[in-house]
Design a protein around this nucleic acid. Structure first.
Length: 811
DNA sequence: TCCTCCCGCCAAGCA
DNA sequence: TGCTTGGCGGGAGGA
């Protein structure tokens, strides 16, 4: 017996079939007709049986519509099963993976162009498709339904659909996003997450009832299919099944991504929301399972469309399947789309700005993804460094101090974000140039108008930058100072300091957080927003901070502030404990910032350190891993475990400044300089510093700013006085250790100086939080506001890293 | 063991 | 009445 040759795995074929340029692929050539069957001998019979078992043969038979022969095939199949051993027969069948809906969808999509010519309508005949793809009709419906939900196809008549491709996608996504917002999906997600969390502690609680009531109380009404003007919806069974249709489910699923930040949706949450809407009373397991099944179906199709990508969200309760939005970013208003839609210069016609960017980007950078980093050698080093550090973290034993690993991830995130921003700037520049060269009208105007601060070519430092004034933040006790490079034109803006802002304990970490307004940035972080507010009663309170000028956390922090102001220093321990309690009951967030350099003067005051080492304080500086290239200090869980510094011990001094006006670097003071200058160890932060300064255009590309005490004797300007005042009332200058820097959005970066302020053994007192901000551009709004008692809050938003550790891993 | 999702039954609805 | 469409859940492959 000859085992039939197994079909080559179709997955690879299909994947290669689907070219990146998304050109329409021709229908695969019809397989050659087989020669007439051999005489009916036992051997030939067997051969025929084997070949008949292959789907290709079967489908061919179907195409020939020989009912008699197909019955023969069935018969022969049956005979085959008898003749062949069970295993061999199974092997002759395509594997489960080869029959997956995702693969089928790939095949399906490969038949049609992404952007079909409007003049040439492509029609889809289901019979043909089922025939050519050798699948059951049922499966095609699954695909078509999802495509219909995105208005990529529309039903024309029985058995007949029209292929629209991606022309309608931007409008559809926009509409879906709007509807999703209207339906308050964010709140629902938050609510579900909160209930999940509560359920952990109250497993016997009447979750379903609560859930049902909460959904019932929301103004959510049963939602129908979101249609687009001009795209007619002609579902076969319109009324009865419409609301359960895969189409509607698919749209809702997409909405969840579009309204979420980050755009990661777990299947569980999606299923609950979808169930919650239509079948409140039947929130049982089987319904849930069914929804999950359908979501997998939808997700497979959306994945084939490259709109989502499967990830895994790891949190305390385990690993959950989730999906991440990888489709085009949906702009908040339709204006941009209309603008883009009028552009006729790109081919295929671009009706979405993101697509136009992608197109131009593709043309500019044929390589994909991170390979773009090859454009900048320092990026390679940095990425390698990140990888190394990441490996260290991953190989470190799991520590109960979860925060440290998460903090590390956060740092890595910020680092990557920073470079993404850098790349995006470069890309924007080059894209414009390239587009201008190829098609002058295609220059994305909105980009330039939106990002004036970034319009300067990177690496080319305007002459005025040479006159930037470093401002020193002295730090006598630790022997560390920080230099802040201020652009003279904007230095005056750093005058908003008020000593009253100074004393700022950290009772609630969202006080110190920053939320990036850039959802793309947030995509990179592995958090689940929403379930972060353990201490808050209402899920809406976990929304962006700007929406709630007065929150519980704020009042609590204000109370703490007053309390701390009233307390003498000897009571700091007490206060810290209360802060700790406050954190325990609410959340532990991490200081946000881009950790550039540690000050390298830990050996500058050995006596102090030896005392502190007993308390496990100083060891952070000694043992923190430092990437030789970047100066990034990852903080592995194991390390922080020994250090034993809870996150709330780190209080940042946050200074929000425009990227074109400020940079920061550590400067060693005399005492520190002496020791550090004798040290042969290279300063790991210098490359990062220079990179950053070049990055934000403060220094020309070739110029290197030494991260050494050259700047330390620069007289403190009036602005810096204000800044150094920030330590006047209390203990800013006693702190040291960390300088954080993070891009907030295109126009703002955040610098935060973090001080670990040892007051007593085992004490790391963090007391200071201060913000300064310069106008970052036309779109920036006041990011900070001072309340009457001197506390400050980020009004722009808060990026909070929840204590609950969440990781997203891609398959 | 659990995740993933194929498979096909069968009912609703249409021509 | 036959066909199309699609909701649904069992159960098996795969990790």
């Amino acid at each position: 017996l000859k085992t039939p040759l197994k079909q080559a795995p179709t997955s690879q074929l299909v994947l290669t079939e689907r070219q990146p340029d998304c050109q329409p692929l021709t229908t695969p050539p019809k397989p050659k007709e087989t020669p007439p069957a051999d005489p009916w001998t036992p051997t030939s019979n067997l051969k025929m049986l084997i070949s008949a078992a292959s789907p290709e043969i079967r489908s061919r038979e179907q195409r020939r519509q020989l009912s008699d022969s197909s019955s023969e095939v069935l018969q022969t199949k049956h005979c085959l099963q008898e003749h062949l051993l069970g295993d061999e027969y199974e092997k002759s069948q395509p594997s489960r993976k080869e029959k997956s809906l995702g693969l089928l969808c790939h095949k399906f999509l490969a038949r049609y162009p992404d952007y079909p010519s409007p003049s040439l309508k492509s029609y889809i005949c289901l019979d043909e498709v089922t025939e050519e793809l050798h699948v059951e009709r049922r499966r095609i419906y699954d695909i078509v339904n999802v495509l219909e939900s995105l208005h990529m196809v529309s039903r024309l008549a029985r058995n007949r659909y029209v292929w629209h491709g991606r022309h309608n996608l931007p409008q559809t996504l926009q509409a879906l996003k709007r509807v999703g917002e209207e339906n308050k999906y964010i709140q629902q997600i938050q609510m579900i997450k909160r209930r999940e969390y509560e359920h952990e502690f109250d497993p016997d609680g009447e979750r379903n009832e609560e859930m049902a009531s909460s959904f019932g109380s929301s103004e959510q009404s049963e939602m129908s299919f979101v249609e687009l003007p001009g795209v007619e919806f002609r579902a076969a069974s319109v009324n009865g099944r419409k609301y359960k249709s895969l189409r509607v489910m698919s749209q809702k699923f997409v909405m969840l991504f579009l309204v979420s930040t980050p755009q990661i949706v777990s299947l569980e949450v999606a299923a609950k929301i979808l169930i919650g809407e239509d079948q409140l009373e039947d929130l049982d397991k089987s319904k849930f399972k069914t929804k999950i099944r359908r979501l997998y179906d939808i997700a497979n199709v959306l994945s084939s469309l490259k709109l989502i990508k499967k990830v895994h969200v790891t949190e305390e309760r385990g690993r959950k399947p989730a999906f991440k939005w990888t489709g085009p970013e949906v702009l908040p208003n339709t204006q941009d789309i209309k603008l883009e839609a009028t552009s006729t210069t790109c081919s295929p016609p671009i009706s979405e700005s993101i697509t136009s960017k992608e197109q131009c980007s593709k043309a500019l950078f044929p390589s994909k993804g991170k390979q773009n980093f090859t454009r900048h050698s320092s990026l390679i080093k940095l990425v390698k460094s990140i990888e190394n550090d990441r490996r260290k973290i991953q190989s470190a034993p799991t520590s109960p101090v979860k925060i440290s690993a998460s903090t590390y991830l956060f740092i890595i995130f910020l680092l990557e974000t920073s470079f993404s921003l850098f790349l995006s700037q470069m890309t924007a520049e080059e894209m414009q140039m390239k587009c201008a060269l190829s098609s002058p009208e295609a220059v994305p105007k909105p980009e330039t108008s939106q990002q004036p601060a970034l319009s300067q070519p990177l690496g080319v430092c305007p002459a005025s930058h040479s006159s930037m004034s470093p401002v020193i933040l002295p730090h006598p006790q630790s022997g560390v100072s920080y230099a802040i490079y201020l652009h003279p034109s904007q230095a005056h803006t750093v005058t908003t300091y008020s000593p009253g802002f100074m004393l700022q304990p950290l009772p609630c970490a969202n006080v110190t957080g920053i939320k990036s307004s850039n959802s793309k940035i947030l995509n990179k972080i592995t958090t689940e927003e929403g379930d972060t507010q353990r201490g808050l009663d209402e899920p809406t309170k976990s929304l962006a901070a700007e929406e709630r000028p007065e929150t519980k956390s704020e009042t609590s922090s204000q109370r703490c502030l007053k309390r701390s102001q009233a307390l003498p220093e000897s009571n700091l321990i007490k206060r810290r404990k209360s802060d700790e309690e406050s954190l325990d009951t609410s959340l532990t967030f991490f200081p946000s910032g881009y950790l550039i350099p540690l000050t390298h003067c830990t050996h500058g005051n050995k006596a102090e350190c030896s005392t502190k080492e007993k308390a496990g304080v100083c060891s952070l500086q000694h043992t923190a891993y430092s990437s030789p290239i970047t100066g990034v200090i990852p903080m592995p869980a194991s390390e922080l475990k020994t250090v034993n510094i809870p996150a709330f011990h780190i209080t940042p001094l946050n200074i929000m400044l425009s990227p074109n006006s400020i940079a920061a670097a550590p400067v060693l003071s005399n005492s520190c300089l002496n020791s550090s200058s004798t040290s042969s160890a290279p300063n790991p932060s210098s490359s990062a510093l220079n990179f950053m300064l070049q990055h934000i255009g403060l220094i020309p590309a070739g110029v290197q700013v030494p991260a050494n005490p050259v700047l330390q004797h620069v007289p403190v300007s009036s602005q810096s006085e204000n800044i150094s005042h920030s330590s006047g009332s209390t203990n800013v200058q006693e702190g040291k250790d960390l300088l954080f820097y993070s891009p907030i959005n295109e126009n703002n970066f955040l610098f935060s100086l973090q001080f670990l302020q040892p007051k007593e053994p085992q004490e790391t007192q963090a007391v200071t939080e201060n913000f300064f901000r310069t106008p970052g551009g036309p779109n920036t709004e006041p990011a900070l506001s001072a309340s009457s008692d001197g506390t400050q809050r980020t009004s722009q938003g808060t990026l909070y890293i929840p204590q609950r550790k969440l990781e997203v891993s891609e398959d």
